[in-house]
C-alpha cells in the first residue's frame, strides 16, 4: 500500500477536525478526497505530510510511519498546499531551481517527469511567479512539487480558483503522471471532478461518508431521481418542498432533482399536483444519480 490510514482523529482546542478516518491508497492510484471547505481535507493532508501529529490513529506513506519516519517521508513525497505556495518575487525558473536545490537535485536530472507540464510555462520562465495567471501558477506549483521525483504526490485543492480550461488540462496532466507510477492523493470541493479519480472518498465534517470508485458510488444511491422542470423555478421549488410525499428536493441547474418517499410513485400524480399550483410547461423525467446527489444523501 502506498498510503495507509488507520483511525486517524484530530482536534484543535475543542473543535474536532477529523474523526476516525481510515482508508488505503494503492500504488499508482489516483485517489480523490471530495468534500466542501471545512470538511477536514487540509488537516488530513497536513497529517499525512508530517506537518501535524494526529491525536489518535496511525498512518504510513510509502511504508514509512508518519511520526517515527517523518524525515524519510519528507524526502519521498511531493506536496502542493492549498494556495499555490510559490515565491512571488522569484521568476518561474528561479522557483523551480530553488525547489530542485533544496531537494538535492537539479532540473535536468528529473526534467523528463515535468517536461509535459513545464513546456507550457517555459516561454514565461523569466517572469516573476506573482505575475502569472492562476492556471500557470498551478502548473508551476505542480512542477515544483514533482521536481524531486516523489513516490507519492499530495495535492490539496489544486483546482480551486482556476478556470475550467486550466482545470481540465490539470486533470489530464495528473492522468499522465499516474502512468509513471506516482501515487496521487488529490482533494477537491468540486463533485464533478470526482469522476476523474480511480477511487474517491466523500468527506464532510471530519468524517468519511463513503469510499469507492466513482461509478460504484452513484450506484449506491437508494432512490430514483426525477428531473423536474417548469416555467417558474422558484414556484416549482416552493411547491415541491411543501408536497407531502417529497423525500428530497434539490435544484440542479435548470432542473430540480426530486425523489419521492413512496415506493409506488407515479410521476403523473406529481404533475397533477404541480398543475394545481399554477405551474406551466411541466416536465418530469427519470435521471441518473450524480456523485453530488449521493453526497447530499449521505451528508443529510
Amino acid at each position: 500500500m502506498s498510503i495507509s490510514v488507520q483511525n486517524i482523529s484530530k482536534s484543535f482546542k475543542n473543535k474536532t477536525a477529523l474523526s476516525d478516518i481510515s482508508f488505503e491508497v494503492k500504488e499508482g492510484e489516483l485517489f480523490g478526497l471530495i468534500g466542501p471547505d471545512g470538511a477536514g481535507k487540509t488537516t488530513l493532508f497536513r497529517i499525512l505530510t508530517t506537518l501535524l501529529i494526529p491525536n489518535k490513529g496511525e498512518a504510513t506513506i510509502a511504508n514509512f510511519d508518519i511520526i517515527k519516519d517523518y524525515k524519510s517521508i519528507r524526502n519521498n513525497v511531493g506536496y502542493m498546499p492549498g494556495r499555490f505556495s510559490l515565491y512571488q518575487d522569484l521568476t518561474v525558473e528561479e522557483n523551480l531551481e530553488f525547489f530542485a536545490t533544496i531537494f538535492g537535485t537539479t532540473i535536468e536530472e528529473n526534467y523528463d517527469l515535468i517536461k509535459d507540464i513545464y513546456v507550457q510555462i517555459e516561454p514565461f520562465k523569466k517572469r516573476r511567479a506573482g505575475k502569472l495567471s492562476g492556471g500557470m501558477k498551478q502548473k508551476l506549483a505542480l512542477s515544483c512539487a514533482l521536481i524531486h521525483k516523489p513516490k507519492v504526490l499530495f495535492l490539496d485543492e489544486p483546482t480551486t480558483g482556476v478556470d475550467p480550461v486550466s482545470r481540465k488540462e490539470f486533470w489530464e496532466m495528473l492522468k499522465r503522471l499516474q502512468t509513471k507510477g506516482i501515487t496521487i492523493l488529490v482533494s477537491t470541493p468540486y463533485m464533478d471532478e470526482a469522476a476523474l479519480c480511480d477511487r474517491i472518498a466523500l468527506i464532510q465534517d471530519g468524517k468519511i461518508l463513503e469510499i469507492d470508485t466513482p461509478r460504484e458510488i452513484v450506484k449506491h444511491y437508494p432512490k430514483t431521481i426525477y428531473n423536474v422542470k417548469a416555467a417558474n423555478m422558484y414556484l416549482l421549488i416552493e411547491s415541491l418542498n411543501i408536497y407531502k410525499h417529497k423525500y428530497s428536493v434539490y435544484p440542479f441547474g435548470e432542473f430540480v432533482h426530486y425523489t419521492d418517499s413512496r415506493t409506488n410513485f407515479n410521476p403523473e400524480d406529481l404533475k397533477l399536483y404541480l398543475k394545481t399550483k399554477n405551474l406551466k410547461n411541466i416536465s418530469i423525467e427519470i435521471t441518473q444519480a450524480t456523485i453530488e446527489d449521493t453526497f447530499m444523501e449521505l451528508a443529510k
Binding site: P36, T160, Y234
Partner: peptide
C-alpha cells in the same frame, strides 16, 4: 466557492 452541496442549494433557493 467551496460551500457544501446542500448549503449551496439553499443559497440558490
Amino acid at each position: 466557492g467551496g460551500v457544501d452541496p446542500i448549503t449551496r442549494r439553499q443559497f440558490w433557493e
